[in-house]
């Protein structure tokens, strides 16, 4: 069984600034993989490279079995991207946005697909309004809906819940869980540790250009056991683990 994503020794610099140093990770088919990192850690850079928007300087990566450098076209056919900043057309209506994407994916019944997705994402009432009149949460839902057109095998979600209120965030979490239940692989980036804790089968922490920890939540908890002195065992939250790792690395 090939992995959904395999990344080896990935490197990327913007001019002098080295962002990715030596990034290695794998994502299982059908799982939710969370990439954690602080602002500027390089999460978006990784997503852009894997979605063929940006070329890496070194290293290799395959997505759904296709090498991103030599088979970008195949990669694009099997993925979809919801970028960090809403990738919707503000001047079109919600319905027109989805129909446009369905046409670009050369699907046979764009109107039907739009009706179904609008309904599923609770946008039916707003379907014929221009997107510029949508709230932040509606933007994000439409954004994700557009990524589901054509049911790609693998979906990239770059900070899907940033800027959403708690209610809208829960809604997006529900959508992501449903996606994974239906067999879609999801790679999401987030700064919210709770989000990774809630959703992810596997969590990787990106720091100073490298993946410094990678595993299931349980594995991460084992690697960084609770403080021994405490009599009542207190499970560390992912947040504590995160800060502990970053702190430790910086001591070296």
């Amino acid at each position: 069984m090939t992995k959904a994503i395999q990344v080896q020794k990935l490197q990327k610099s913007y001019k002098q600034l080295q962002v990715l140093n030596d990034v290695n990770f794998e994502v299982e088919n059908g799982s939710i993989f969370a990439l954690l990192g602080s602002n500027g850690a390089g999460k978006t850079t990784i997503v852009k490279i894997l979605t063929t928007l940006l070329k890496q300087d070194g290293g290799t990566a395959t997505v759904n079995g296709f090498d991103i450098a030599s088979k970008p076209e195949k990669v694009r056919q099997s993925i979809s991207l919801t970028g960090q900043f809403a990738a919707v057309d503000e001047i079109l209506t919600g319905r027109e946005n989805i129909i446009m994407i369905a046409k670009l994916r050369h699907l046979s019944n764009p109107r039907q697909i739009a009706d179904d997705l609008l309904k599923r994402f609770g946008l039916t009432d707003a379907a014929d309004r221009r997107v510029s009149t949508y709230s932040g949460g509606m933007h994000r839902r439409l954004d994700i809906a557009m990524s589901l057109v054509g049911t790609p095998q693998l979906i990239f979600l770059d900070e899907p819940t940033t800027g959403l209120d708690p209610e809208a965030r829960l809604e997006v979490w529900k959508i992501i869980k449903e996606l994974a239940d239906s067999g879609t692989t999801v790679l999401l980036t987030t700064q919210y540790l709770e989000e990774a804790e809630q959703l992810a089968d596997q969590i990787a922490i990106l720091h100073e250009g490298k993946i410094i920890a990678n595993g299931t939540l349980a594995e991460l908890k084992q690697q960084f056991p609770p403080a021994k002195l405490e009599y009542i065992e207190k499970q560390p939250t992912l947040e504590e683990i995160f800060l502990a790792i970053i702190g430790k690395k910086e001591d070296h």
């Binding site: 694009r76 970028g83 919707v88 057309d89 994407i101």
Partner: peptide, 13 residues
């Protein structure tokens, strides 16, 4: 400037 371009570019068009 907008994300919609990135979406187009990540699609097989």
């Amino acid at each position: 400037q907008r994300g919609i371009f990135e979406r187009f570019h990540s699609m097989p068009i």
